[in-house]
Amino acid sequence: MSDSATHHEDGHKSLIIENKKLLMWLFLGSDCMFFGTLISTHLIYRKIYPQEFEPTSLFSLELTSFSTFILLMSSFLMALAVSAMHKGQLKSFRRNTVGVIFFGLIFLGCQVYEFTEFAHLGLTLESGTFGSTFYLMTGTHGVHVAIGVFWLICMLFYSYTGKMDAHESAVDVEVAGLYWHFVDIVWIIIFTVVYLIEFIGKT
């Protein structure tokens, strides 16, 4: 936003946290409840019907560990991009953002591959509660990643228009970074309680 906007919004008080950042934090708080609901639905049905489905026959720990690692690394790059933007290093920002986007796309590719593979092996939306909860949960997460990738692509393009303003854009990138880290953390939780737990005592 322009300096007049700064005057309009922040002129007369020292903000602890910028409007946009606070908005994102609230969204993430809300999003916690979204994923909380999805994950608990999954776990509840897992507990009620432990025999309905044997996920270890399906899950490929190697593939999912790889995609989890990729997403973790993308978070690291995201942090670098945010810090670059704060320092006003546009080039470094672009380089890191490209990395995040690339890694995000790899993650999405893994998920698409995983879904088609599972569907071939007989796990579909129609196949009982496991299929329902698994796909809705991981699918919602995938949509989050896709939106994040799209958002970062837009930002990348925007950085070439020359309209990026040091302070305001740094906040914008930071907000996108918050979102990306959150999506990453959610995945780590899903990876743990949906994938890893299934392998306890089974390898």
Partner: peptide, 22 residues
């Protein structure tokens, strides 16, 4: 509070449209 019903509605919609079994 709203996320709980948003997800519940999404699950219900999936039940009706895509044949899930929530």
């Amino acid at each position: 509070a709203f996320p709980a019903i948003t997800i519940a509605l999404a699950q219900l919609m999936f039940d009706r449209v895509f044949g899930t079994s929530f």
